[in-house]
């Protein structure tokens, strides 16, 4: 069964990079450009995993994680943060919001793939 990963990033370059890396691993990819866009698309995308950036316009990654965790259908979906940020404060904030894990950019496609396999249930 093909698993679906929703990627959320305001950078078209990063979305394209993730699309290429994840599609190459056999995943179906649904892309969103920020938290608002992700929440609008999440029901249609029906993701098995969400990978989100933190710094985005309209709704950032922290707010998105909280919103997804408050959603009755998606409150158990794994959420990985993929961000240039690496401070403990921000990681702890994401953990409290309900994130599953954190990966610091830039990402290595092989390591990203391994991380996805660890969190996909």
């Amino acid at each position: 069964m093909t698993r679906t990963i929703m990627t959320v990033d305001d950078s078209p370059s990063m979305r394209a990079l993730l699309q290429h890396a994840l599609a190459g691993e056999g995943y179906r990819v649904a892309s969103a450009e920020d938290g608002v866009d992700a929440l609008e698309r999440i029901d249609a995308a029906s993701p098995d995993l969400v990978i989100t950036d933190i710094n985005m316009p309209r709704m950032d990654g922290f707010e998105l994680i909280e919103a997804v965790r408050g959603h009755s259908r998606w409150n158990n979906v794994p959420i990985l943060v993929l961000s240039t940020e690496f401070s403990d404060d921000k990681k702890q904030r994401a953990r409290r919001a309900g994130a599953t894990g954190w990966i610091v950019k830039p990402f290595d496609p092989v390591k990203l793939s391994a991380a996805i396999r660890r969190v996909l249930v």
Partner: peptide
């Protein structure tokens, strides 16, 4: 180190 999963 970037790219490593920090699992919560």
């Amino acid at each position: 180190v970037s790219g490593e999963l920090d699992l919560f």
